[in-house]
């Protein structure tokens, strides 16, 4: 079943990655299941989806088109992106097996993947299922998907806590489940492309790893390979670098 941003109404295919760091259009981080032929209901209530047999020909095609158009696929999926309906809602179970695909083991506890009709799987789901997401694709401090179901509309403003320049070695991706509704968000124009981001994160995570204050692990090859020069570590694991002179041009 597709997901819908409760702020702007944009619909995302089930399993879409682009919604993992918030709606790329409006930045909202609350999503609901999108019943077919129903637009932005006021309440993001999971039980609003019993009438769900989604007409795959219309909405799915549209959202797949959206997904393709969304070039910014830089947000790594955590593989647990479906804001799954609560298990205790029997009405949502039968008609909505599509959101319980095995690609979402982190949030879908003990649902039987066997009853997932393969025919309803769409491209985004297949992608999310088959692709193993490396941790470096997940922005630090990104929103764990478990927060997306809370109806309270707080925190829709992005906290923008991703700081690619200064992230320390300790900034391993947070496991889903904490950090409330913080979204690593920046104006979309400022985002580097995927390969740049990945490279940057690789550098940050690998050259100096801060185990605890005063305890470090160093990757000598990474330190040797990087053009910029780390000149000052800070207590919190961030560090200052000196970029090569030709970067200023």
């Amino acid at each position: 079943m597709p997901h819908q941003c409760t702020s702007c109404g944009q619909v995302f295919d089930d399993g879409s990655k682009e919604m993992l760091s918030g709606c790329p259009d409006c930045g909202g981080n609350k999503f609901q299941f999108h019943p077919s032929s129903e637009d932005v209901p006021e309440e993001p209530e999971p039980s609003a989806e019993p009438p769900d047999p989604p007409t795959p020909d219309s909405s799915v095609a549209r959202t797949v088109g959206n997904a393709a158009a969304t070039v910014r696929d830089l947000v790594g999926s955590s593989g647990s992106q479906s804001a799954g309906a609560p298990d205790d809602d029997p009405s949502s179970r039968d008609p909505a097996p599509a959101d319980s695909t095995p690609s979402e083991p982190a949030t879908a506890p003990d649902r039987t993947p066997a009853d997932t009709p393969v025919s309803r799987e769409d491209a985004a789901q297949a992608d999310a299922r088959s692709e193993v997401v490396s941790p470096d694709e997940i922005p630090a401090g990104s929103d764990p998907p478990t927060g997306t179901e809370t109806p309270a509309p707080d925190d829709t403003s992005a906290t923008g806590n991703a700081e690619p320049d200064t992230a320390g070695g300790s900034a391993t991706p947070e496991p889903a489940g904490d950090a409330g509704a913080r979204v690593a968000e920046e104006p979309s124009e400022d985002r580097p492309d995927l390969s740049e981001l990945r490279e940057e994160l690789n550098d940050q995570f690998e050259s100096i790893k801060v185990l605890s204050p005063g305890q470090y692990e160093l990757n000598l090859m990474e330190l040797y390979d990087r053009e910029e020069y780390i000149i000052a570590l800070q207590e919190d694991g961030r560090y200052t670098i000196q970029v090569p002179e030709n970067w200023h041009d």
């Binding site: 050259s207 100096i208 204050p213 005063g214 305890q215 470090y216 692990e217 160093l218 000598l220 330190l223 020069y229 780390i230 000149i231 000052a232 570590l233 207590e235």
Partner: peptide
């Protein structure tokens, strides 16, 4: 690997050892 606890064996206070460790890491870089 740089570990401040190594410096504690040399009669160094923890704060000094942690700082030395941080500076040593910068030094390796």
């Amino acid at each position: 690997k740089v570990d401040y606890t190594e410096f504690l064996e040399h009669d160094m206070e923890k704060d000094d050892a942690v700082r030395r460790s941080r500076e040593a890491t910068e030094g390796v870089a």
